[in-house]
Nucleic acid binder design. Structure first.
Length: 300
DNA sequence: AATCATCCCAACCGCAAGCAC
DNA sequence: AGTGCTTGCGGTTGGGATGAT
């Protein structure tokens, strides 16, 4: 892997941007797009490295940047997402139109963190609702948030199971025999439950949409989680949860066992799937939270 | 008014993933 | 498969703004 060294050059300006530089950058991007950030400064007549230009554009000059204080809703979203995702500022920012990861990160570090004692863990009513007990997860504010929490809950449970069974499953290769993990999910019992739910509703477009999107290349690197027990073919979330309750504790960032706060560190391999879920519109997975049968499925 | 402390945020740095060759 | 380049991300820092003494 290469390392960006663009700022090592001599004669490259650093520090605060001047209005003239801002103007030059905006004008150039308006006319030509940013293209290669590496070559942009030269073409735009800026004595800056491409990295600096990119940062300036993304964090400050982009026309769709939202300025001003964070709203209560935004704040709530940040708190909830941070509870689920940790310091994944870019992912959190993707759920807050007009806000940048840098801005959110700063806001968290300067405002929210100090309001939430115990190093970012939540207290009282601000405690994130993500929990290993799905009976609590529906208390989140917005439907989309509930969907995300439910999905994440299911995923962590699956990861818990996988971690426990990993030593037994070395005989099969997840990546080669099942390159598309969403298809695995689709063919699992949970997927069958989804189909059953949608079947009852007379629909199918949503599910198909889910599959077609999930089959895209972006999801090929998603978590190695399999929701289907390949050995028995009879795994359910219920027994997954039983096993999890008895022996599995997710880890905190410092490696200690997780408390009931549900502050998880997620595996990088799950990013694609998670991001995909976060990008879904409410309606696309709305049937999950509206449906008691889905929760029943989780319960077994 | 001067000095010091703290806050806040724009910008930088290093790392890693993705991609092309 | 190996290498180098580009881009994106998260952590950290520098310095201006503001408040306290």
């Amino acid at each position: 892997m290469g390392k960006a060294l663009c700022c090592d050059k001599q004669g490259v300006r650093r520090g605060a941007w001047t209005p003239e530089e801002d103007e030059a950058l905006v004008e150039y991007i308006k006319m030509n797009g940013h293209g290669s950030w590496r070559t942009l400064p030269m073409h735009a007549g800026l004595l800056r490295c491409g990295k600096s230009c990119r940062l300036r554009w993304i964090n400050y000059l982009r026309p769709d940047i939202k300025r001003g204080p964070f709203t209560t809703e935004e704040e709530s979203t940040i708190i909830q997402l941070h509870g689920m995702l940790g310091n994944r500022w870019a992912t959190i920012a993707s759920q807050l139109p007009g806000r940048t990861d840098n801005e959110i990160k700063n806001y968290w570090n300067t405002q929210l963190k100090k309001r939430l004692p115990n190093s970012g863990h939540f207290v009282g009513s601000q405690q994130p609702s993500f929990s290993t007990d799905h009976s609590t997860i529906v208390k989140t504010e917005s439907p989309s948030m509930r969907h995300m929490v439910q999905w994440e809950n299911a995923r962590v449970e699956a990861e818990a199971r996988l971690s426990m069974e990993s030593s037994l499953l070395n005989s099969w290769s997840t990546s080669e025999s099942h390159p598309d993990h969403f298809l695995q999910l689709w063919h699992s019992e949970v997927g069958q439950s989804f189909r059953a739910i949608k079947g009852k509703e007379g629909g199918g477009g949503v599910c198909q949409s889910l599959v077609s999107q999930a089959s895209s290349s972006k999801l090929e690197s998603c978590s190695d989680v399999s929701l289907q027990d390949k050995n028995t073919g009879s795994s359910t979330f219920a027994n997954m949860k039983q096993e999890q309750d008895s022996s599995y504790k997710p880890k905190l960032e410092d490696g200690t066992a997780e408390s009931e706060l549900g502050y998880y560190e997620f595996l990088d391999s799950s990013d694609s799937a998670l991001n995909h879920m976060l990008d879904m519109h409410d309606g696309e997975i709305g049937f999950l939270c509206e449906s008691d049968s889905f929760l029943n499925t989780l319960d077994g």
